[in-house]
């Protein structure tokens, strides 16, 4: 029952996010707006009830399960992208390679400077 109460609150924030998305014409999904709103709401309250914490933990732990139907579709992709695979693959692998290298160097530099000032 505790988890269900938390689940209800998460669903309400999702619906609230959907409503805000449509009302303001935002280019972001209702889930993202709901996430920002629940974070702001918790910061205002300054405390989190166990039923929200438990419900969110339960949902996050099955996140992989929820995205699997989409991932399985990857293996059944139609031939519509047959000419794109090289560009797509190179961009993904090389792009990720460069991005990880840059962000590691950036973050290390910033953290070093930060601790240097203390």
């Amino acid at each position: 029952m505790v988890v269900l109460r938390g689940f209800l609150i998460l669903i309400l924030f999702f619906l609230l996010g959907e409503a805000v998305r449509v009302l303001l014409g935002l280019p972001v999904s209702g889930g993202v707006i709901g996430m920002l709103m629940i974070t702001a709401w918790l910061m205002l309250r300054g405390t989190i009830s166990t039923h929200i914490a438990q419900a969110s933990q339960a949902l996050i732990s099955v996140l992989v399960l929820l995205i699997m139907p989409g991932l399985a579709g990857v293996f059944f992709l139609a031939d519509q992208f047959s000419g794109q695979w090289l560009a797509f693959g190179v961009a993904l692998v090389l792009g990720t390679f460069l991005s990880v290298l840059t962000s590691l160097l950036l973050m290390r530099h910033a953290a070093d400077q930060d601790s240097g000032h203390e």
């Binding site: 998460l10 996010g17 996430m35 989190i48």
Partner: peptide, 16 residues
């Protein structure tokens, strides 16, 4: 997959 909606909202909790 419809549960991805509330699951996204749930990501706000570790953030807080």
């Amino acid at each position: 997959t419809v549960l991805l909606g509330p699951a996204t909202v749930a990501l706000g909790i570790p953030l807080y």
